[in-house]
Amino acid sequence: MIQIENLTKYYGLLKAVDNVTFTVSKGEVVGFLGPNAAGKTTTLRIITGYFPPTTGKVRIGDYDVMDKPIEAKKMIGYMPENPPLYTDMTVKSFLTFAAKIRSIPRKIRKESIEKAIELSGLTNHVKFIIGHLSKGYKQRVALAQALLHDPEILILDEPTAGLDAKERMDLLNMIHEFIGKKTVVLSTHILADVEKVCNRVIIIHKGSIVAEGSYEMLSSSVTENDRFALTVLRNDDEVEQELRLIDGIINITRNQDNPKRFTVESIKDLAVKEKVAKVLVEKNYGLIELSPSRLPLEEIFIELTKQ
């Protein structure tokens, strides 16, 4: 659905995006991660046709954004960062204007506007002047505007910034609903958001992609080792000593809140896991959990964006 090839963008001499290539297929929800000033917003702005890249190509569906901007833009709903809104308009009149310039046919215009208002939770605020709304509600107006024409592609730039906990949950739940229906690119630096809704992550740092894939793939790109969690009922100190005796175990950390839960890092060998299970069961420590675990996204992220 979205195909990006060798995208490079200079602002004067500053290279903001450096040879970025990736694709997003239909129905995927992709998290676009990176520290601040990594080039996320620049990339998204190029995808949405706000400005052209210095070199490189962007294809949206069947259209090249540079050659067929109108067709490409019709397919995209874009919620920019720090939503740019006409502060002197009311919510309703702004959405009506947005509907008109997106050429939503008159017949379904009213319906689409009402649907977008409902989806973004603005039902009680339609007559408010946008400039008088709080940040969270401005975000909602930007979201409503992006959903207005029921686009196939949704590009959301830091959509959860400025939302309270409940608003954030609602938004993430809504994005989660889109999996399989719409193609979503969600840019953020809040890792928990991505973990909740995205089936794939692209990590960008200093203008280039440093990693791309599912969590498992990302986790294995950072470390070669296996990780698993286990919980016992008894003798946790003894368990730790026993585990350290097993060959192939690299590191053992104990959960701070629950000292009977361990996270074990070992070499990638199933025999190690087998041995751990065997020891714990034979010594009757009351093994109640043994499950694979992955590096938390934070650690992957920090590892990948270290330089």
Binding site: R45, Y50, Y78, P84, A98, R102
Partner: peptide, 9 residues
Amino acid sequence: TFEFLFTSP
């Protein structure tokens, strides 16, 4: 708001 206009068709 140019960002809004330019990303609209």
